[in-house]
């Protein structure tokens, strides 16, 4: 078994992992769907969602997915510096997204609308927070990836890891589209 043979198995395995992660999100979505109207006298979705800011967050994350794609193109062409640059941009965009999301959370908590207020808020924080946690893990992964590109270059070993990272990042993007649609847009619409 040589590494070339292995990479297929790693990518496939990573897809399987992503599917399990998707099921985790599905369970969180189910909980959210069941509890979204259980505000228990607390704020409703309409009252707390700041759609413009969410739009900005969404655009930033979509952009980071795009730059991640550019970085991967550079990886496939063996352009080390370019890939380094685009991964760096992806990191900054991801960090910006996370900071915006945390500021949104802090705002809610300062207004006395934390997860202890109602079942709806619990499910909201858990669902969006889990996505945020994934983003944080992704950011850590980019940092490690950047270090690996710098020290080892775009070897098949490193590239294979970067492919998996890009799958992870695009996956988080897709999950966010679902959150944006089913939590924020539909929340404000009802």
């Amino acid at each position: 078994m040589h590494p070339e043979h292995n990479s297929g198995k790693y990518i496939f395995g990573f897809w399987v992992y992503l599917m399990t992660d998707l099921i985790m999100f599905a369970a969180l979505f189910a909980a959210f769907a069941a509890l979204r109207i259980s505000t228990f006298g607390g704020p409703t979705m309409k009252e707390i969602f700041d759609l413009p800011q969410i739009m900005i967050e969404t655009l930033i994350l979509l952009m980071s997915s795009f730059t991640c794609g550019l970085a991967m193109l550079a990886v496939f062409r063996g352009k080390k510096k370019l890939s380094f640059l685009w991964f760096g941009v992806t990191f900054i965009l991801g960090l910006a997204f996370l900071i915006l999301e945390l500021s949104e959370f802090r705002h809610l908590i300062n207004d006395g609308q934390s997860w202890t207020r109602s079942a709806f808020l619990s499910s909201y924080f858990a669902l969006v927070g889990t996505h945020g946690l994934h983003i944080a893990v992704g950011l850590l992964w980019i940092l490690v990836g950047l270090y690996q590109i710098k020290t080892r270059g775009l070897t098949p070993f490193i590239s294979s890891k970067l492919v998996r990272f890009s799958l992870f990042w695009h996956f988080l993007d897709i999950v966010w589209i679902f959150i944006f649609t089913f939590v924020y847009l539909m929340g404000v619409a009802t």
Partner: peptide, 8 residues
């Protein structure tokens, strides 16, 4: 408050 009796 996912599965508690109170708070929805």
């Amino acid at each position: 408050h996912f599965f508690t009796t109170g708070f929805g």
